[in-house]
Design a protein around this nucleic acid. Structure first.
Lengths: 161, 161
DNA sequence: TATTGTTATACTCTATAACTATA
DNA sequence: TATAGTTATAGAGTATAACAATA
């Protein structure tokens, strides 16, 4: 069996603190590393289109919703503060990728919508992104990919104590 | 079968872009979310001891090495810049958790070592951390935890194209 | 000349909170 | 009074590059 950096870390802990059962680090250490490594690879795809990861997420959220969303819906979905979201929307509006539409029902609010240019950009970036993800997952066969997704879903269920 | 936020996102994509096979998002979307959610839970444990995640990582790296390390070894292991590492070491030295030892072989260099206080702090924090990780992994049984670790290792092998 | 480590600078990103307009 | 969204401020953290000392 192949060993990786996390296996070596676990072996070190076994020597330094043999009283501790550090096996869960085999999961969380790899999740953390995978998030950094794969996140940076995805970022490279977004950067080719001039987007940051957060900007991609905003455009993608609007694209898959197939409808304009309020800033509040967006920052709750993306786990950002309202202030951070306003700043992001501003910049994307300036670049002609988003537009704010006044709301009829509540005049405090507005709806953020993709422009024609924004829709074209997110559609083409998304295609490159999905292709990239298929490449990144290719070390696993189709069954293994399914198993991994199911185990991760189960790991995160119920927000256990 | 239980569904989660990522399943709902995948269902949206299926409607909005049925031409794309977005299944890998079931893996990478969950890795990214897991890293944020679990990372924040681990951070809470570190904060109780007055440590940030990076500070914990520095002390833990020295603890499991069971030997002083150079700043270069530390920033390479932790994927930080040399400048960022210097700043971090400074603060931990100020707090009496680390000390710099002049090197005999190379007078440009030095070795960073845990102080008595640093060693005590990392040992007790580590125990709380490992306990916390066991709790976080408890949604999976022992076999599933092993399977998940193996699949993550395989996913990251060979840095494929 | 190259390398180790530190320092100084600037930048990115964010949360917080004050603020406005409206409900 | 509470809520939606924007703006202004400040802070955390980092990378970069210039620098000093030594190899």
């Amino acid at each position: 069996m192949m060993t990786d950096a996390v296996d070596r870390i676990l072996a070190q802990w076994e020597k330094a603190r043999p009283d501790l059962d550090c096996r869960p680090m085999g999961i969380f250490g790899r999740i953390s590393r995978a998030s950094r490594v794969f996140g940076s690879r995805m970022e490279q795809v977004f950067e080719k289109e001039g987007l940051s990861t957060v900007e991609f997420d905003i455009l993608a959220t609007l694209r898959r919703s197939q409808a304009p969303l309020t800033p509040t819906q967006l920052y709750q979905t993306l786990m950002l503060s309202s202030g951070a979201m306003s700043t992001r929307i501003d910049q994307l509006v300036k670049r002609g990728l988003l537009q704010r539409q006044a709301s009829d029902e509540d005049r405090r609010s507005n709806r953020v919508a993709l422009t024609e240019a924004g829709r074209h950009l997110i559609d083409s970036t998304l295609e490159a992104h999905v292709e990239n993800q298929h490449r990144m997952a290719s070390a696993l066969d189709s069954d293994e990919q399914h198993q991994l997704a199911c185990l991760l879903r189960k790991l995160m269920t119920d927000e256990q104590r």
